[in-house]
Amino acid sequence: MAEAAESPGDPVTASSRPLFAGLSDISISQDIPVEGEITIPMRSRIREFDSSTLNESVQNTVMRDLKAVGKKFMHVLYPRKSNTLLRDWDLWGPLILCVTLALMLQRGSVDSEKDGGPQFAEVFVIVWFGAVTITLNSKLLGGNISFFQSLCVLGYCILPLTVAMLVCRLVLLAEPGPINFMVRLFVVIVMFAWSIVASTAFLADSQPPNRKALAVYPVFLFYFVISWMILTFTP
């Protein structure tokens, strides 16, 4: 590449000087554009080293990642046309949300085997297996979204439902009764709708228009099942 670029200027200088000295001179003096092109990735790599995780304090590293996760949470809570959630995907947020949800769905009683609520592992498997199945489904339908982007979006959009779970646990501290149930039902329905709206805002564009409904329906089923688990939770 460099040889080919310097060949037009080569014969003039090479004839007047010794061969090797001339070559080295030319490569430094005349090939600024080529050199520049080569150093552009170098410079960015140097910049990366400057802010590399090696010589910054642990607090900075953690805070930066937490800030990225928090920013994505904001995107889910206020869904608008933005690619942040799609472009820099991570699975930290989904993991945090999924573990929080599964922990809150645990019952206090020791014999939770008998009362038939979902176990920690069952919630975990439903969330991850469900998200993987929906992603595979949208890929098989011909959607142009990467596997982990879709997983990331589906995982982050559980956030409203995790909030609903938190509200339900607080409401359940009060006196049980029909009003208590109505409040929980209302919260879960609103948060369920929120999850659907947020996830479709991010995912729907990745599908061809005549298949949008086919890709959105599994998402609906997924959040519906999670909402059902939250609504039927009794401590």
């Binding site: 038939g116 979902p118 176990q119 089923l221 519906f224 059902w228 039927t232 939770f233």
Partner: peptide
């Protein structure tokens, strides 16, 4: 699968509705 499991659970709940001793369980095993 979910329609059967959830409505089976709901119908079980409706049968026992109003009984003081009935403790609702989600029956996730279903």
């Amino acid at each position: 699968v979910f329609a059967i499991a959830i409505s089976g659970n709901l119908s079980n709940f409706l049968i026992h509705l109003g009984q003081k001793t009935y403790h609702y369980v989600p029956e996730f095993r279903k």
